[in-house]
């Protein structure tokens, strides 16, 4: 006999992810602290290592803006600054 599957199709993401750059040399890197404990320390160290190995430059270290945290997007102000000042962003840290 027949029954239905319960999961349905997977939809299309609302926005595609930007492609990763092939070469990091000379690119400007931002650290976006998502507010999780030690995120800034961990991500900044990772960015510094990345810069040392590839010739990228750590240009900006910022949080997401007042009232924003790991569960939300960053503020428009911070997003505008990132868009203007850097080429790639390191973010994401969990509990």
């Amino acid at each position: 006999m027949k029954i239905y599957a319960p999961d349905g199709r997977i939809g299309v993401p609302p926005k595609p992810r930007a492609p990763s750059p092939a070469v990091l040399t000379g690119l400007r890197v931002a650290v976006l602290d998502n507010g999780k404990p030690n995120a800034r320390l961990l991500l900044t160290r990772a960015a510094e290592q990345l810069a040392a190995r590839t010739g990228a430059v750590v240009e900006l270290v910022t949080d997401k803006g007042p009232g924003h945290n790991a569960a939300t997007a960053c503020s428009d102000l911070v997003l505008d600054r990132i868009t203007e000042e850097v080429d790639l962003v390191l973010t994401g840290s969990a509990d």
Binding site: M1, K2, I3, Y4, A5, P6, D7, G8, R9
Partner: peptide, 26 residues
């Protein structure tokens, strides 16, 4: 139709549970 149809031996709750468990459902 957007919903897949599966074949199952019988419509007992045990059969559904077993099939769904193998697929990580339930």
């Amino acid at each position: 139709m957007s919903t897949d149809v599966l074949e199952i031996a019988d419509d007992s709750p045990e059969a559904v549970l077993a099939l769904y468990e193998t697929r990580g459902w339930g």
